[in-house]
Design a protein around this nucleic acid. Structure first.
Lengths: 213, 213
DNA sequence: CGCCAGTTGTGTTTAATTGCACAAAAAAAG
DNA sequence: CTTTTTTTGTGCAATTAAACACAACTGGCG
């Protein structure tokens, strides 16, 4: 039950459990079993019980798990029981789409600043409709300055692959501890700075392997 | 060297190797070692050698790997040595952004049809500028009909979570074998239909766990 | 040509992950 | 109140994945 050295593979499943539980709760379900949850997320019941048991005893024999209780604990474990501020670097098509997307905010991640290195973009509003997003694109040169001392620890990286590493280095310098990297390159970072990769093509290629006709 | 039962975890790394190799090749490098490649992708050299050895002997002692040769073989293994047609279902903000995004096409995945169930969207062009994307949004009701008998085997699912499963069922019925799912729900599919999940929030939550102050 | 530095492919060992199975507890049924 | 059913948490076994280590091969150089 030492939360410090829980293997990452277990951590990686918790958001999936949380997502499914939140969904069930929205649908009015207040109790579930490892079996039922397992069917929803495609993971064996034993696996789920073992994963959860790393952090405490949340279930009750004969009954299962009380959903709101488990949600609360998972959020606390993942440290998403409070909202997080996030910045976006690289305001191309993708950066704009992400900034406008409402889904992050709903799930507790607030975009608070946007940066780009293109002088023609700097100073422009991210979105015409200020109700959707009232941010202004800032100069990437000011990144370190603006972030140092702020509480922002998470960034989404949407710059071209060719400059992703150097921008990542700046993010590290600015005290960022987690980078959601949309650029199709692996990043090298100090080990206290985590990177999560989002490359749809990798997913497509991986599936293509299995399609035989 | 029986390609059929190579573990999925190995397959999942191949696109990452391929991506790095293509990048190196674009930069004019024509030879690399497992050591060097490992540093680029953050995976041990031994792991890379063992992964590749599942499919044949591509390297040469003393020299390493000839990059274009290895790229060619990885593409053949992953079956991305020819382009793939893909459809998008759900033309909200996200679906539009994906349809306009040029990156898929560059890496061999061509968007050939777009569907939505909203009558006000059906018949509209995906993009004002036909040079970027000259597709028209089609009625989701026609999905099965249009796809059956076509060679399309891959789909990107961008509909709201609430209807994702039922649309996925239709995709399965239409003969789709791989779904890139952007909806934040797990999908249940027959085991010959693969699903890859893209949920940025999961990545953010996973990183949030490690940020302690 | 012979030696050295570099590098692969793989057999073997070690570590990590998952699956199994069951006692213990709770609730439901009789 | 007793029995049956349900379901958890967990020790142990089995499986899977990763790391290690080295023989075998290659190319370069004196």
């Amino acid at each position: 039950m030492n939360i410090e050295n829980v293997p990452d593979i277990i951590i990686s499943r918790l958001p999936v459990y949380l997502r499914a539980l939140e969904r069930m709760y929205e649908h009015g379900t207040i109790t579930t079993s490892s079996q039922e949850l397992g069917e929803k997320v495609g993971i064996s019941a034993a696996q789920i019980r073992k994963d959860l048991s790393q952090f405490g005893e949340f279930g009750k024999q004969g009954t299962g798990y009380h959903i709101p209780f488990l949600i609360e604990h998972l959020r606390r474990i993942l440290r998403v029981d409070h909202p997080w501020d996030v910045v976006i670097v690289g305001m191309g098509e993708l950066g704009h789409a992400i900034a406008r997307y409402q889904g992050f905010s709903v799930r507790g991640f607030h975009v608070v600043m946007c940066f780009d290195n293109d002088p023609t973009k700097i100073g422009r509003p991210v979105c015409e409709d200020a109700k959707i997003c009232d941010l202004t694109i800032q100069d990437e040169k000011l990144l370190v300055e603006k972030l140092a001392g702020s509480r922002v620890k998470l960034a989404m990286l949407c710059v071209p692959a060719s400059i992703a590493q150097q921008v990542a280095d700046k993010l590290v310098e600015a005290g960022i501890k987690g980078i959601l990297n949309y650029a199709p390159v692996n990043l090298v970072t100090p080990k206290d700075v985590r990177v999560q990769y989002i490359d749809p093509t990798v997913g497509l290629q991986r599936m293509a392997f299995y399609i035989k006709e």
